[in-house]
């Protein structure tokens, strides 16, 4: 059982890394963890996200929208879909960025507080939703998702 859960966590990280590579990002950020959770590996967490309309494609679309909106603040008008793409690199092997580290730290603290021996996707989702700062909460707001309500539902999954 322990091995199985550890596998899920490893797969989540691997998936998040692939999402980062797809972005050409040198770092795995919180949004890549969220995208990873929206995959079949996410289990209950993926189901909860889907119920809120947050499929992987919907999250990707909202992330692009957030990018465009944040650039507009600086007076830069960009249509993300029209940006030139670089060939993404499989070997770049993105490392954990600070936002993703915070997600895992919050997830681990929550798991520990509840006496869980292992972090499940639901713990990780709680970690992702447990902040009002950064790209993920801005993206959720743009997607019309009530982050606080979703956070409460995620907590119920692990309680």
């Amino acid at each position: 059982m322990t091995t199985k859960l550890k596998d899920v966590r490893t797969l989540l990280v691997q998936n998040a890394r692939e999402e980062a590579e797809m972005d050409g990002s040198a770092m795995i950020e919180a949004e890549h963890v969220l995208l990873s959770l929206a995959s079949p590996i996410g289990g209950d967490a993926a189901r909860l996200l889907a119920e809120a309309g947050l499929t992987r494609d919907a999250i990707r679309a909202a992330l692009d929208q957030e990018w465009e909106q944040s650039l507009a603040v600086a007076g830069v008008t960009v249509t993300v879909a029209e940006l030139p793409r670089a060939t993404s690199e499989r070997g770049r092997n993105p490392k954990f960025g600070e936002s993703a580290k915070l997600v895992l730290k919050r997830a681990a603290e929550r798991a520990k507080r509840l006496g869980a021996s292992r972090m499940s996707p639901a713990h990780v989702l709680v970690g992702v939703l447990d902040t009002k700062l950064g790209r993920v909460p801005r993206t959720l707001e743009l997607a019309g998702v009530d982050r606080t309500a979703l956070y409460a539902k995620a907590i119920q999954l692990i309680d």
């Binding site: 050409g24 990002s25 040198a26 957030e66 990018w67 944040s70 650039l71 603040v73 600086a74 830069v76 960009v78 940006l83 030139p84 793409r85 670089a86 790209r135 801005r138």
Partner: peptide, 15 residues
């Protein structure tokens, strides 16, 4: 957020 978005744009363009 705009600072982060601009960095991401510069990285994408550089690549």
């Amino acid at each position: 957020a705009a600072v982060v978005a601009l960095r991401r744009l510069a990285d994408r363009l550089e690549d």
